[in-house]
Nucleic acid binder design. Structure first.
Length: 879
RNA sequence: GGGCGAUUAACUCAGCGGGAGAGUGCCUCCUUUACACGGAGGAAGUCGGGGGUUCGAAUCCCUCAUCGCCCACCA
């Protein structure tokens, strides 16, 4: 056993400790027939990712839950792995190619995919290594990836099943197109942002004047799309335009003749009440176009540059096209006016480019049939959200769910398992690769698109366990227990796992969903690497240790939906680790002559700390069950620091020095309480607790080598003892009052004082019994406890726990100071008493308040009365 | 346009129906043999404003204000 240095050094402990956990095999899931396992699947971080504060928080939560369950003896498994992250990974590889002046088209699809795999093998385990640095107890031996061969088969299986059931279909629709990523996006992958924009009013001349008018003015936020206009729409009930419905307008700049149609969609109150309609570039216009049989003219290519359809404007970037169109309209006097207008513009969630609504062929999943059962399981309480308020968010989304565009025009990902026959035109979905058409034997081409990354992530809880095969893992661990994640992927991921789990694995994927707070920086802004507004968990672990970071995060994890990251919580957590270290060091330094034995609540102090330990165990148990991590962390901190260190260790010092049976009893209780506290602390602070725990003496030959495998404390509530707690409260109050006197007169620590305590009843009994403790803790030489104690002439005074205290300080007492302080205390006590007296004199209170509340207030009232009496007397004596 | 969250000590936050709390910071004293990443003592708040319910409200309800987040195809 190595000597413990004076300060805890995380760096000296963490690496070696983690290795010992790994080699000890503690992380591996063990399946035992007939047992109820505890399984969590990690939200797979992107292979492109590195640990950020959200990961740090989320994975601390999961590790806390898993470690605690493991200690209860339940078979546990925390499934770890990464997500192939289609767009993100493809971007990385494309960037790498770009440095060599190449595009993915230069290398070709096959080679490009190879490069992606190479990238994944090179960089993909960065984040897993960072999880290890945090101490996360994942099952690393069995790491998963959303592009593993088995996983790929699971994805194809799901797609083909959906295809066969008609739940996935191909359609030409307006989708969200990212011109930079060159792919379609689903609706929830588009981030809407309000921007200050303009509303242009454009004059569209009528071909023939109608009822005295020769034009219609339309309002638009996107003038360039007029190049694809195929009609103008007005509301049928709008009298202003009654006469022009059916007329023909001549599209400015291009001269195309297009009709004026009447459509209910148009809001007469907005703009001019006349809308230009571009069916190929706006979902609403698409609908209008469908209803009126208008042509759909695609004016942009995949890079959002104008096509040949735009005639003289061909080949322009969309924003350049806007500029040119506006200029030309102005030149021709067709621009009526321009208003400032705020509206929402969609951006790609991956690269933040403005998304283009674009008409194209895509694959969609029909979501309504999948959503229904997924709503039901939440409604029936089979899947629970924590905090509960997120169920409402979930329902809103699920009840208004729209079809999911799942095809992506990328190369990295799960290629859609659909094959087209060149000969007969047959379209076949197949789990196994096809070379020839099953209908005519002709040659087939596979659909070039890949699936949305989230399509494969949705299968994570069961695909990682071996589905579609009926593996023992699947049977044993599925459904899993808890899914902990951030709120921004409730729709993208959580809802889809529930839907697919029910559909394909035949059950809910997990029973409890923890939506943890989002970590913002100290200014309340989103942490962002590119903006430099982030904090790096690795730096934090360097500064505060992994345990310090974890505990500091747990302290901040409350029911609130945001965390403004407070680094000082990590500082105090590092200090806390040091406190644990030194308290343990003290215990270990005082074990000479120790013989193992059970804890014994023989003395008041022992009964008290064991009672407090029992209360702590209850609080930790209840808090973890309710996922109230902040409360658990606070309970642990307060117990260990404010009770165990501040009082119990101090109370034990005398008996340790006394030797004999008193020393042995104190040693046993110190070891027991420390051991139990380390167990309770372990899920949140795994490294330091295990390091210390291994140093503790034990007579148990079966004792585990690591605290990870030690038993979670149970049955500590047997130590609960209200009498002992009340007694120690008296000691604490009296000691604190004497210390306050000492501080007031700045007495040296070694300078002893005498104390006359005017006490009777229970207080007198307790003080008599605990006199040695009071003397040791308050620096008292002679302690006189007497019902008739009188104040010596030159004495400082205090009232604590209903006991009058006199501290003779010959020549030191500042009577002015004493009077001032006593008077102030008296005022406060009187104010409290007045309030209480009024309350107790209120018939409504006496009649309606709970009996124990009235009783408690009566007791408090008489205590306050006694205090007021005593303070009054003391004030008189100080005259 | 809907929905959610926040507003408590200088700062970051707990508490969410019966005596206003913590951490950090601040002030005083202390290198006392577990710990100065410490010990002892202290100062500091009309719990965002206004109504209401209740014997009793930081806590429940309504309303206003400010900040933040999500959802929503009004050009």
């Amino acid at each position: 056993m190595s000597e413990m240095p004076k300060a805890y050094d995380p760096g000296a402990v963490e690496g070696a400790m983690f290795s010992s956990w790994l080699s000890g095999g503690y992380f591996a899931g063990r399946m035992a027939e007939g047992t109820d396992p505890y399984c969590i699947v990690i939200p797979p971080p992107n292979v492109t990712g590195s640990l950020h504060m959200g990961h740090a928080l989320n994975n601390t939560i999961q590790d806390v839950l898993v470690r605690r369950q493991r200690m209860t003896g339940r078979p546990t498994r925390w499934v770890v792995g990464t997500d192939h992250a289609g767009i993100a990974t493809q971007n990385k590889v494309e960037q790498k190619l770009a440095k060599q002046g190449l595009s993915r088209y230069d290398v070709g699809r096959e080679k490009f995919v190879e490069l992606c795999w190479a990238w994944r093998h090179e960089h993909g385990s960065t984040i897993v290594g960072q999880l290890k640095a945090m101490g996360c107890s994942c099952d690393y031996a069995d790491e998963r990836f959303t592009m593993d061969p088995g996983y790929q088969r699971a994805v194809r299986e799901v797609f083909v099943k959906l295809f066969d059931e008609g739940l996935v279909y191909k359609g030409k629709r307006i989708i969200n197109w990212c011109p930079r990523c060159s792919t379609a996006l689903s609706d929830i992958e588009v981030e809407h942002e309000d921007v200050d924009a303009k509303l242009w009013y454009v004059r569209y001349p009528l071909k023939e004047p109608v009822a005295g008018r020769d034009h219609v003015v339309v309002a638009t936020t996107r003038p360039e799309t007029m190049l694809g206009d195929t009609c103008v729409a007005v509301n049928p009930a709008d009298d202003r335009y009654k006469d022009v419905v059916g007329a023909t307008v001549v599209l400015p700049l291009l001269g195309r003749e297009i009709p004026v149609v009447a459509d209910e969609y148009v809001d007469p109150a907005f703009g001019t009440g006349a809308v230009k309609v571009t069916p190929a570039h706006d979902p609403n216009d698409f609908e209008i176009g469908e209803r009126h049989g208008c042509a759909k003219i695609n004016i942009f290519d995949a890079d959002a540059r104008t096509t040949a359809e735009t005639g003289p404007y061909e080949g322009l970037d969309r924003f350049e096209a806007r500029k040119r169109v506006v200029e030309d309209l102005e030149k021709q006097g067709l621009l009526v006016k321009v208003d400032e207008h705020m509206h929402a513009v969609g951006h790609c969630y991956r690269c933040h480019t403005v998304v283009e609504p674009w008409l194209s062929d895509q694959w969609f999943v029909d979501m309504k049939p999948l959503a229904k059962p997924a709503i039901d399981v939440v409604r029936e309480g089979k899947v629970r959200f924590h905090p509960q308020r997120w169920t409402g968010v979930y329902y809103d989304w699920m009840e208004n769910i729209r079809d999911w565009c799942v095809s992506r025009q990328l190369w990295w990902g799960h290629q859609i398992p659909v094959y087209y026959c060149d000969a007969c035109g047959e379209m076949t979905a197949s789990v196994d690769h096809l070379d020839v058409c099953p209908r005519c034997g002709g040659s087939v081409r596979q659909d070039p698109d890949v699936l949305d990354t989230w399509f494969s992530s949705a299968l994570w809880p069961f695909a990682t366990l071996g589905w579609p095969d009926s593996t023992p893992e699947l049977a044993y661990y599925y459904p899993t227990e808890v899914l902990s994640t951030a709120r921004d992927i409730i729709f993208l991921w959580v809802s889809r796992m529930i839907m697919q789990g029910l559909r394909f694995a035949g059950d809910i994927p997990f029973s409890d969903v923890i939506i943890h707070p989002t970590v913002f920086n100290a200014e309340g802004k989103r942490m962002s690497k590119s903006l430099g507004t982030g904090v790096d968990p690795l730096d934090l672990m360097e500064k505060y240790g992994a345990d310090g970071m974890r505990f500091g995060l747990m302290l901040q994890t409350t029911g609130s939906q945001d965390i403004k990251f407070a680094e000082e919580k990590l500082l105090s957590s590092r200090n806390f680790a040091n406190k644990i270290w030194n308290a343990s060091r003290f215990v270990l330094m005082n074990l000479d002559g120790y013989v193992a034995g059970p804890p014994a609540p023989d003395t008041v102090a022992d009964a008290w700390i064991l009672s407090r330990l029992g209360a702590l165990a209850d609080a930790v148990e209840a808090g973890l069950d309710a996922y109230e991590f902040g409360e658990v962390a606070r309970a642990l901190y307060d117990f260990f620091w404010s009770e165990f260190c501040d009082w119990y260790i101090e109370l034990a010092k005398g008996r340790l020095a006394a030797g004999g049976s008193a020393r042995l009893a104190a040693q046993r209780n110190l070891v027991f309480v420390l051991d139990s506290a380390l167990r309770l602390l372990h899920p949140m602070m795994p490294f330091i607790t295990d390091d210390i725990w291994r140093r503790l003496p034990s007579s148990d030959p079966e004792r585990a080598e690591s605290l990870m495998a030690a038993a979670w404390p149970t049955g500590l509530e047997r130590f609960r003892n209200p009498d002992a707690e009340a007694s120690v409260a008296i000691v604490q109050e009296v000691v604190t009052a004497v210390r306050a006197v000492r501080a007031r007169y700045q007495l040296a620590p070694r300078a002893k004082v005498d104390v006359f305590a005017k006490a009777s009843g229970a207080e007198a009994v307790v003080l008599e019994g605990e006199a040695d403790h009071v003397r040791a803790l308050a620096g008292v030489d002679v302690l006189v406890i007497d019902t008739k104690a009188v104040k010596p002439a030159h004495a400082a005074v205090a009232v604590a726990a209903g006991v009058e205290l006199f501290v003779p300080l010959a020549g030191l007492v500042d009577f002015e100071k004493e009077r001032g302080r006593v008077a102030k205390e008296l005022d406060a006590a009187r104010a409290d008493l007045d309030k209480l007296t009024r309350k107790l004199g209120n018939p409504g209170f006496l009649a309606k308040a709970a009996a124990e509340v009235v009783e408690k207030d009566r007791n408090r009232s008489s205590e306050l009365q006694a205090t007021v009496t005593k303070l009054t007397a003391q004030l008189a004596e100080l005259e």
